[in-house]
Amino acid sequence: MILRPLLIALLLALVLRPEWFTPVFAPLAPEGGPVIYQRASLLSLSLSHLGLVAAASLAATVVAVTLAILVTRPAGAAFRPLSRTITNMGQTFPPVAVLALAVPALGFGAGPTLVALFLYGLLPIFENATTALSTLPPATMEAARGIGLSRWQRLVRVELPLALPVTLTGIRLSVVIALGTATIGSTVAARTLGEVIIAGLLTNNTAYVLQGGLIVGLFAVLIYDALVQIERRLAARIGA
């Protein structure tokens, strides 16, 4: 795709040199109003946005994969039906509602956003990791047992690497949802790119809305694409 470098260039320009776009956005701004978002640098907002998403997704991945390993061991099998009920119910919870409900419990700021992103991010990763770990090819497992690998060695050397591509799909879903939910996090005073869109909505400044929307949209699309590429590489290496 030749589109990819173009989009990356556009994104970098929008974040680092927003003033270049003044003529493009000017017709959309209200008469005499500001055209380019000045209240905070777009770079720091982007970094804070991505930082939130990365922290929440990392924590969610660690916890979800650990839980998935636990419920796929013989000792944890009793919790499987329950964990499935929780993931099914949890995924019908709208992300915005999770965020809104975190505020009464945790107050405003980055805290509730982080918690909401983390909680919501757990579900897809857990679901995919559990599916992957419980549908490994029986022949491979048999072979691993046959060459005398201990349970721990089987987990680390066989099961986890084989489950990686499907787990990564879950991580990708969760990251994309987190990127979107973090945008809404700015309504509870977390510093994210949503701030630019909300400022635009409040002051009727379409130029702001478009800037924020374009940057967030480009980030989401490019990160999604990057994760898809990684998944393909991994899947190809495993030969799945």
Binding site: T183, G194, L201, V209, V216, G217
Partner: peptide
């Protein structure tokens, strides 16, 4: 699936100038 990736607030925001 590209459309699905766009964060919701951005999508709602981008619809405003278009429909306006």
């Amino acid at each position: 699936s590209f459309l699905q990736t766009i964060p919701s607030l951005a999508m709602f925001g981008l619809m405003i100038p278009v429909l306006g």
